[in-house]
Amino acid sequence: GSVVKEKKEKALIEVRPYVEYYNELKALVSKISSSVNDLEEAIVVLREEEKKASEPFKTDIRILLDFLES
């Protein structure tokens, strides 16, 4: 629970300088966080969101995924 939350919060802070739609990304992460149990599940849902998103938000999600998977 809290470790996953920390990882996601740290990821958002780390990617902030590189993303165009930070507030939207943060809102998406919050929405996903409330419906998943762990980081792996969150990553799966983020990948689905990435497929549906259009640029440049798609790239923002990709940047976040790269950080979460590192």
Rank of each mutant, 00 (worst) to 15 (best):
P56N: 05
Y22R: 00
E24N: 03
L46H: 00
E6Q: 06
R62Y: 03
E40L: 09
I13M: 09
K51H: 12
K5R: 11
K52Y: 07
L68R: 00
V45C: 12
E49K: 03
E49F: 06
L46E: 00
K10S: 07
V3Q: 10
S54H: 10
A42P: 01
E40N: 09
I32M: 04
K10R: 13
L68F: 08
N23A: 13
V4Q: 09
I43E: 03
Y18Q: 15
Y21V: 02
P56C: 04
G1I: 13
E55F: 10
R47A: 08
K52M: 12
E50Q: 11
K26V: 15
D66Y: 14
L64N: 00
I63Q: 03
V15T: 03
L25S: 00
K8G: 15
L39G: 05
Y22H: 02
F57T: 02
Y21G: 05
E41P: 03
S54A: 10
A53V: 06
A11T: 04
E50D: 02
E14H: 11
A53L: 04
K5M: 14
K10H: 12
V15M: 02
S70P: 09
A11N: 03
K52T: 06
A11R: 03
V36W: 06
E41N: 06
K7D: 09
V29S: 02
R47G: 07
L39C: 15
Y18G: 14
Y18M: 15
I13P: 01
D60T: 04
K52Q: 10
S70N: 13
V4E: 12
P17Y: 05
S30L: 10
L46K: 00
K10Q: 13
D66F: 12
K10G: 05
E41S: 09
F67H: 07
E6H: 03
E55C: 07
R47W: 14
K31F: 09
E6W: 01
L28M: 06
Y22S: 03
E40Y: 10
L46A: 01
E14D: 08
E48H: 07
N37R: 08
L12M: 05
L25C: 02
I13Q: 14
I32F: 03
E48R: 08
A27T: 09
V4G: 10
L28P: 00
I32H: 04
A11Q: 03
Y21P: 01
K31T: 12
L64Y: 14
Y22Q: 01
I43Y: 06
V15H: 01
D38M: 06
E55Y: 11
R62L: 06
K52H: 09
Y21C: 15
P17C: 15
G1D: 13
D66E: 12
E20L: 07
L25V: 02
R62P: 00
A53K: 03
E24M: 05
E50P: 00
V4F: 05
K26F: 12
N37K: 08
I43K: 07
K8E: 14
K26E: 15
K7Y: 13
L12T: 01
V15P: 01
N23F: 12
